[in-house]
């Protein structure tokens, strides 16, 4: 599994190198503002700050990281509207801001209103329960839900709540879905016994290794690295997935050379485990994954379409 990922990463690295000649001569015309769609503190924020630091040392650019959190990244996407497109303003958020966040139209934006640059990693999303419950598989969970009162399941974003709901619907069980703040809030509630289960995006891996938490389902389109036997959402009859990438994007109509240079330099950093940023990604998410260019655009287009369907399906 790991090998496959590493191979994929190398392959991507090469595909980026092919476009490098186009990008080589771009330098930012002034200091760069790098927005971070997460609150300060925590792994996602550190990831962004470490990448900024490494970019500064490698290329001598001036980068000021700035936290612009809120609404799962939509606030930052709004900030991009009207920002200069010369490569001096861009930001890091999660792909959910572009697909699910913009799908229902209230945000008055579509993914075409921003320029995707590059992903840094895929969040390791898993449906997790405390080990103390004694549930080893998703079937155990379903059996427990059918036997007693509705179980309490947490969700950290609306998209995850929708998928959780559909998963329960497919399995024929009732759940009380509760929104919680971030992975940390979810883990605290699981440990305290306030919640019975929930999808977590990577913050749980330490608890799984320690035997305090158990992964029952993979939320991604691929297997979990710690629990490869856990079923995928598709195996449970849910035709959606929770592939959530951490990704950089800039304002609409961003300078092509800037986009290519940034994609290349950021991917080199996140794939290099000897950098602080690379090491952090390795420790928290099993490694960096840099997708850019047409492949990234294709992912966003398809997940935007599927987010609309998901919204529709979950509201029925």
């Amino acid at each position: 599994m790991k090998k496959f990922l590493a191979f994929g990463a190398i392959a991507l690295g090469y595909s980026i190198a092919a476009t490098a000649s186009l990008a080589e001569d771009w330098t930012p015309p002034g200091p760069i503002t790098m927005h971070i769609a997460f609150p300060p503190g925590g792994g996602s924020d550190s990831q962004a700050r470490l990448i900024a630091e490494e970019l500064e040392t490698r290329y001598g650019w001036t980068i000021t990281p700035q936290n612009t959190p809120g609404k799962a990244g939509l606030i930052m996407a709004k900030e991009m509207q009207g920002a200069p497109a010369d490569g001096t303003v861009f930001g890091i958020g999660i792909s959910e801001a572009l697909d699910y966040g913009m799908a229902d139209g209230t945000a008055d934006m579509t993914p075409d209103d921003v320029t995707p640059i590059v992903t840094t990693t895929l969040a390791e999303v898993a449906f997790v329960v405390p080990a103390s419950k004694g549930w080893k598989t998703f079937d155990d969970f379903v059996a427990a839900a059918k036997a007693g009162a509705p179980l309490r399941v947490g969700a950290i974003t609306p998209k995850i709540a929708d998928v959780t709901y559909l998963m329960g619907k497919e399995a024929g069980i009732d759940m009380n879905i509760t929104m919680v703040k971030g992975g940390r809030g979810m883990l605290n509630a699981l440990y305290a016994g306030d919640l019975d289960a929930g999808f977590v995006a990577g913050a749980h891996s330490k608890g799984v290794k320690a035997g305090e938490l158990v992964e029952l389902v993979s939320g991604m389109s691929r297997k979990l690295s710690l629990t490869p036997d856990a079923p995928l959402l598709g195996d449970l009859g849910v035709p959606y997935n929770l592939d959530i990438y951490f990704m950089y994007f800039g304002p609409k109509g961003m300078d092509g050379a800037a986009q290519a240079t940034l994609a290349q330099s950021i991917s080199e950093i996140v794939l290099d485990e000897s950098t602080k940023a690379g090491a952090l990604l390795k420790a928290n998410f099993g490694g960096g994954e840099a997708i850019s260019g047409e492949e990234l655009q294709a992912f966003i287009d398809s997940s935007f379409a599927s987010a609309k369907e998901l919204m529709q399906a979950a509201s029925e």
Partner: peptide, 14 residues
């Protein structure tokens, strides 16, 4: 405000 006092999402009142 975008939603009222209570709102029905995913067949659940929140």
């Amino acid at each position: 405000t975008g939603t009222g006092l209570v709102v029905q999402v995913r067949r659940q009142v929140t």
